[in-house]
Amino acid sequence: MYSKELIRGTLKTIVLKLLSEHGRMYGYEITQKVKEISSNEINLTFGALYPTLHKLEKEGVVTTSSEEVDNRTRKYYSLTSQGAETARLKIEEYYQFSRLMNLIMIS
C-alpha cells in the first residue's frame, strides 16, 4: 500500500485516464480496475474515490447516467467533451511531472 498522500495527489489523473480509455464506468468498477492494473498494490477506498468523482462532476469534467442493474441503481460516469480535453492535459502533465521526479530522484 502506498501512502495516502501519493494517491490523493494523483487520484484525479487516475480516474480521468481510466474514463478516457473505457468510456463509461461506475465507481466500484474504477476501484477494481485500479486494483487489477496495479496488481493489488493500489486500493482506492470508497471514501477517497467518490468525493473525487463528485468534484469532477461539479466541475463539468464528467457527466453521470443512472441505470437499473441487478435490483439496484447504478451510476455511471463518463467524460464530457470538455472532460476529454482535461483528461488529455492531466495525463500529459503527469508524464512531464514524473519525468522530472525521476530526474530529481536519480541525480
Binding site: 461506475y26 465507481g27 466500484y28 468498477e29 443512472s66 441503481t73 451510476k75
Partner: peptide, 16 residues
C-alpha cells in the same frame, strides 16, 4: 439521495 444509491451499489458489488 444520490450518494446513498452509489454506496448501495458499491457495497452490493463488493458483497457480490
Amino acid at each position: 439521495f444520490s450518494m446513498e444509491e452509489e454506496l448501495i451499489d458499491y457495497v452490493s458489488c463488493e458483497v457480490e
